[in-house]
Computed example of a mutant assay.
Amino acid sequence: MAPLPRLAPMLATPGSLPPSRSEHLWSAETKYDGQRALIYLPGDHTLLIRSRSGDDITAAYPELHALADTLGGVPRVFDGEIVVLDEAGRPDFERLQPRMGLAGSPAKAARLAARAPVHLILFDVLFSAGQDLTGLPYVRRREVLEQLVDAAPTWSVPGAVAGHSRETLEFAREHGLEGIVLKRLDSVYEPGRRSPNWVKIRNVRTLGVVIGGWLPGHGRLTGLPGAVLAGQYEDGVLAYRGSVGTGWNERERADLAHLLGIAAMDECPFTPVPAVPGARWVLPRLVAEVRYTALTRAGLLRHPVWHRLRPDLAPDG
């Protein structure tokens, strides 16, 4: 039996919704917050799961081995995302994190699988029964995928809607999902490439925060803030929400450095004190807006990006 081709996953480019006149050229799928994986089924009822970096992570997810019994009689390669679902059926990255990195600890992986089982989202098929499918258009690969895979408790094929990207993005927003991925109906699969033919659009929220500290930058950012430490007032105390280190231009970073220098103090304004080595504290008087995708269960911002300083607003403390 010929070996399966070793492939790298195709990656999406961050972007925005297409113009209405070209919306019919795109299909929209839900964006899943999980671990990207390529699934190799050699045809002998075994499977190999590789991460985006190419590492063998098969042993970390024993509950997915059943896929080899169902689809493993014919050589195939699938692309997908490994997630852990919450009670509402939404991907919860926090619940997935303890499952990641356990390829070398199969006993621990098995114990965690019983408490927080993963679900595999299969959204593409790249090789099947001796045929390389990467050169086929997306719409044809979807047809093959849907013919091959029946939904099961541990895996499924995501829905795809052509020509209605705006409605799909709004649906994702209303249901608390991370966003959508748009895929051109005529696009081929480009292994290892971040392609404009796949566009990811996150549902981004904006939050007003109070700056209570900062972390010094390094290299070309020496003497400037590498990140600010953000919080919100709860019951009169400043609760830590995490660090924000991207989204500034050079002028904004320099202006912020000046303001942080004026506000410097020795005492931490957060309660409780966050474990942030090297932090420098400031009077909690600067208010800013940051963009983020979600809050963790611990109340920390996921994927925070600086938006703007709000000198017109006062902290709520």
Rank of each mutant, 00 (worst) to 15 (best):
I262T: 13
L185P: 01
R285Y: 00
S16Q: 14
C268N: 06
V209A: 11
V125G: 00
T206S: 10
D235Q: 15
A230H: 07
D266E: 13
A59P: 08
A254R: 15
M265H: 09
R76A: 11
Y189A: 04
R220S: 15
R21Y: 11
E170P: 07
L7K: 11
E234W: 05
G104P: 10
S243R: 15
G226Y: 08
V273P: 08
L286K: 03
G179F: 09
G104N: 14
E94A: 14
A2V: 07
E29D: 07
S195K: 12
L185H: 07
L224N: 06
D255G: 13
A113R: 15
V282S: 04
M10T: 02
L41V: 08
A113S: 15
P14I: 05
A160P: 05
S16R: 11
T134F: 00
A37G: 06
R173A: 15
G213Q: 11
P272M: 07
M100A: 02
P284A: 11
T271D: 11
R111E: 15
R251H: 13
T13P: 00
D255M: 15
W281N: 08
G73F: 03
L71I: 00
G15Q: 07
A275D: 14
V83P: 11
K108H: 09
G135L: 04
G34D: 08
Y32C: 01
A114D: 09
A110V: 05
H164C: 12
E81Y: 11
E167G: 08
N197E: 13
H65L: 12
C268S: 14
V305D: 00
G299Y: 01
L85T: 10
K108W: 09
G217M: 04
T271W: 12
A288G: 10
V77I: 06
L182R: 02
A28K: 02
C268Y: 04
I57G: 07
A162M: 04
T58M: 05
S22P: 04
D316H: 12
L224V: 02
A114R: 15
L41D: 02
E81V: 12
G43T: 10
A8K: 13
A162G: 10
F171I: 05
L256C: 09
G247H: 12
R95Q: 09
V244A: 02
G72W: 03
T134R: 13
E29L: 00
A263W: 05
R99F: 03
V161N: 01
A298Q: 13
A294M: 07
P3V: 04
R6E: 12
R310D: 03
V144G: 00
L4W: 02
T168V: 14
D124W: 04
L313V: 13
S53P: 03
D255V: 13
P98N: 05
A288V: 08
H175L: 10
P216W: 09
G242R: 04
A109N: 05
G135H: 06
P3M: 03
V118N: 13
L47A: 01
